[in-house]
Design a protein around this nucleic acid. Structure first.
Length: 325
DNA sequence: CGTCTTTGACCGGCGC
DNA sequence: GCGCCGGTCAAAGACG
């Protein structure tokens, strides 16, 4: 399963590398997406790319999710994996996933509105314990989920939002527990689950569920301010600030409105990819049955504006590169 | 004192 | 109906 759109390519199993513990959040334009290298990893079979959702829960962009909404089956249960597999995909590599999903998005928007109403209702019900029973009678509608894998030594990756841990459970067939987080903002019903892959302990699987009901807290300085993350010099992947696919998708979404030539980005991609990159030494990649040709450089046309802003990569990209325009 | 984490209990869905 | 499992609740404790 692979989709390409304006220089974007997303494969079914994507690993985001994170030397740091800092993740970009879903509302922001991801730097890592602009330059990260994504490859199918054979050892990470628990994560499937599913096309069933028409929007990313981290985005307010319903049209995008069929591109790369990643649904994680938490472990070996396989329950969720079977839900929306084999969804239609664009036949042509350059076909626009956004437009292909637009018709479905109309229906999905409707669903979202309905779901938002239900969530609001649920919020009220929470205050009334008596209605708790009533709540259980309603068939629980699960929010679309959005998962991504990150190579990180830190379990809970910072993403710009404040989270409160409300639970932790042992994961079946895994020595690593799964942590449940919820936004500290009461009005925001986004949740996330964090667990470590039992196949590769260096990989953290983060699953977001729900939509933020407010702008990103880190968006205030500029459109890309939030992803300006101080990193130790030379830490390329960390400097990219890893991302989730919400930001990935948003990046692509933005590109729809910033269709500018992306020679600059390609230059950076080429240059940065030649730098020392943890992926290159990752055993999971070494063991991949997929050829290096299958690795894709993600380059987002929408980053031109960002580059001018210098906000995102100025900590990691040599200054002379930033001047190369 | 407010916020956050921990952790056992509880609940609902689902398969057998 | 029963048991398993994922997800959530909520009290208690830790921490700044």
């Amino acid at each position: 399963m692979e989709k390409k759109d304006m220089g974007l390519s997303v494969k079914s199993e994507d690993v985001v590398d994170s030397s740091s513990s800092l993740l970009n959040n879903g509302y922001q334009f991801s730097s890592v997406f602009d330059f990260c290298e994504v490859e199918r990893s054979s050892s990470l079979g628990f994560m499937e790319l599913l096309g069933g959702h028409d929007y990313s829960p981290l985005l307010d962009v319903p049209q995008l999710s069929t591109m790369s909404t990643v649904k994680a089956s938490s472990d070996t249960t396989g329950k969720e994996c079977s839900e929306v597999l084999n969804q239609q995909q664009p036949a042509t590599p350059n076909s626009c996933s956004i437009s292909s999903a637009s018709s479905e998005a109309v229906n999905d928007n409707k669903t979202l509105v309905d779901q938002a109403d239900e969530d609001e209702e649920e919020e009220k019900q929470k205050t009334n314990k008596q209605l708790k029973t009533k709540k259980t009678n309603l068939k629980r509608q699960r929010e679309p989920r959005f998962a991504f894998m990150t190579k990180s030594e830190v379990d809970h990756l910072e993403d710009g939002y404040r989270w409160r841990k409300y639970g932790q459970k042992a994961v079946k067939n895994s020595p690593f527990p799964r942590s449940y987080y919820r936004r500290t903002t009461a009005s925001c019903n986004v949740k996330k689950r964090v667990e470590r892959s039992y196949t590769d302990p260096s990989i953290v699987v983060t699953t977001y569920e729900g939509q933020h009901t407010h702008p990103s807290p880190t968006m205030s300085r500029s459109a890309f301010a939030g992803v300006q993350i101080p990193q130790p010099a030379g830490v390329v992947s960390g400097g990219f600030s890893t991302t989730n696919f919400g930001s990935v998708l948003q990046g692509n979404y933005l590109s729809q409105y910033h269709q500018q030539p992306y020679q600059h980005q390609q230059l950076l991609v080429n240059t940065l990819s030649s730098l020392s990159h943890p992926y290159n030494n990752s055993s999971s990649f070494k063991n991949s049955p997929f050829t290096t040709q299958e690795r894709v450089q993600l380059c987002n046309p929408g980053t031109t504006a960002f580059l001018r802003d210098n906000g995102l990569l100025q900590d990691v990209v040599p200054s002379h590169m930033l001047k190369e325009k």
